[in-house]
């Protein structure tokens, strides 16, 4: 099932809490991370989310770059008073104002989530892993690297990475040992043959 994920970057605890409680009223949403300052953005963290809601006051040259980088797959929403002029360097999906009513915030967010869902529907339908993915999974479980798998199956490393991401999303398993157990449990590989034969 599609779940819309959010990251919130805002200094005020009260505002963050308030916003989270509104977001959580929408089914299948989750606030996966919250930051109260821009410094923490430097730490390597999992930024994969559908939406980022950020107070533009917390943007500086540095954070702007980070946000820009992740904004390819993530929609950025501003959170501010009406009077604040937004930086033109970012593509803002929408703006939430501090004096918005709950209904208007819900409406803005629901529209965005709706749009995103339709876009994602294509990749969401086959929840079961495909035959191609099983091939890839088999090789991962046997201990091959992305590069080796790419060479073996005559596809690009990039394609292997995409397949891996989809496998992880579908199964909910991220690590190689985890995927290996899955492969054994589902008889994709043989328990006595785990590990590539070194020749």
């Amino acid at each position: 099932m599609y779940k819309a994920t959010f990251i919130i970057i805002e200094k005020s605890y009260l505002i963050r809490k308030g916003l989270i409680s509104i977001i959580e009223k929408i089914p299948n949403t989750q606030v996966i991370q919250q930051f109260d300052n821009e410094d923490d953005l430097k730490t390597p963290a999992n930024f994969e989310s559908d939406f980022i809601i950020i107070n533009p006051n917390l943007l500086n040259a540095n954070t702007l770059n980070i946000i820009k980088k992740i904004a390819k797959n993530t929609q950025v929403i501003s959170l501010s008073e009406k009077s604040i002029v937004l930086t033109k360097e970012l593509e803002w999906t929408t703006q939430i104002y501090l004096d918005d009513t709950q209904n208007s915030i819900l409406k803005k967010l629901n529209t965005l989530i709706g749009n995103r869902e339709t876009k994602n529907v294509k990749s969401e339908v086959p929840e079961e892993i495909s035959k191609r993915e099983i091939d890839i999974l088999k090789n991962i479980a046997l201990g091959y690297s992305n590069k080796e798998i790419a060479d073996k199956l005559f596809i690009s490393t990039h394609t292997v990475v995409t397949h891996r991401k989809n496998i992880t999303r579908k199964l909910g398993i991220k690590t190689v040992p985890g995927l290996t157990i899955y492969a054994i449990l589902n008889k994709i590989i043989d328990i006595n043959n785990t590990g590539k034969s070194k020749s």
Binding site: P44, I173, K174, T175, P177, G178, Y182, N186
Partner: peptide
């Protein structure tokens, strides 16, 4: 900071395997 890896990830996998598979 750069080398500090996410040591929890595998536990989450294990949990998922037990719950789902």
């Amino acid at each position: 900071q750069n080398e500090h890896d996410n040591i929890e990830e595998k536990l989450l996998d294990l949990r998922n395997i037990i719950i789902k598979y």
